[in-house]
Structure formats: C-alpha cells, structure tokens
C-alpha cells in the first residue's frame, strides 16, 4: 500500500527548525493595519522566503494554504490561495498579517508567527519562541510581495 499522506505530526513537528532562542522579540510599530518598517531593518530575500513557504516543516503555510509554488505537494484548503497576495496587500500589510494576523482578524486560525504572549500550554520545545524569526518573516514577506496576479 502506497501512503500518500504525510503524517500530521511529521508535517508540523519533526525537525522543525524553530526560531533561535531570542530573549525578546524585536520591537515594531503598527500603523493602521500594517507594520511599515522591516523587523530587521533590512529587506528580506524572496528566494529564501519561497523556501520557507514551500517547506511544510518550516513555514507550515501549505498545511492550510495553496499557492503558486508547485514544488510543495499536497497543499491545504483551509485558507485562501496565496496567488495574488502581493497585489491584494502592501508589504506593510503582509508583514502585520505574518507577525500577528489576529490584529486584523480576531478569530483567525492563522497562527501569529511573531508573537510569544497570550498563548497557553505551549510545548516546552517551542516555549518563548516565535514560529519564525524576524529574518525569516522578512524573507516570507519579500516572497509574498512577488505573488502578483
């Protein structure tokens, strides 16, 4: 029997490179529905961002989303297709949606990728760490901005 299903646990957990242990998150300012300045002060790299998004162990995006990155097989149907995200949203809007999408959609199931508070019963391996580092967020934002319709 050929198994086409990649186990949930493997998908989400195994060898997931988590954010480096950082004592604190870098500060940022929210202007309206956006974070206008880079979390790292530098521009992200869209090629690295694409790798993060397409890698189900790192970005986790394809668990829920589909999008124009066919190298990631078995994409999810829980969230909008990411095609055109760079047309729908400005870079600052994309950055806020990555950092903490609940700021714009309070009931969303999309995890906050750069928030460590208001979480309960986090597994010890992930405690006090954001899902992605500031640099990874910038890479993903740079990639999403290239997804023009």
């Amino acid at each position: 029997m050929r198994l086409s299903v990649i186990p949930l646990v493997t998908l989400i957990l195994s060898a997931a490179p988590t954010a480096m242990a950082q004592d604190a998150l870098r500060p940022y300012t929210i202007d309206g529905d956006a974070i206008s300045t880079s979390l790292t002060g530098e521009d992200g790299d869209p090629a690295r961002g694409r790798e993060i998004v397409a890698n189900r162990l790192v970005g986790l995006c394809v668990l829920c989303h589909s999008g124009p990155f066919p190298e990631a097989p078995l994409q999810g149907t829980l969230a909008p297709d990411l095609k055109g995200a760079g047309t729908r949203w400005s870079i600052g809007q994309l950055r806020l949606r990555m950092v903490d999408s609940s700021r714009v959609m309070p009931d969303t199931i999309m995890p906050a990728y750069y928030r460590i508070d208001h979480l309960v019963r986090v597994a010890p391996a992930f405690r006090g760490k954001p899902v992605l580092t500031a640099a990874q967020i910038e890479d993903v934002v740079a990639f999403l901005a290239t997804l023009k319709e």
């Binding site: 086409s4 299903v5 990649i6 949930l8 998908l11 189900r56 394809v62 668990l63 829920c64 097989p73 078995l74 994409q75 999810g76 149907t77 829980l78 199931i109």
Partner: peptide, 14 residues
C-alpha cells in the same frame, strides 16, 4: 477549529 468547523477540508494532504 479543525474537527467542528473544518472537517472535510484538507490539512496539507490529509
């Protein structure tokens, strides 16, 4: 979120 609200949808391949 998954079992009451999104059953039948795909989480990646499952």
């Amino acid at each position: 979120h998954c079992h009451d609200q999104r059953f039948g949808e795909k989480l990646a391949g499952s």
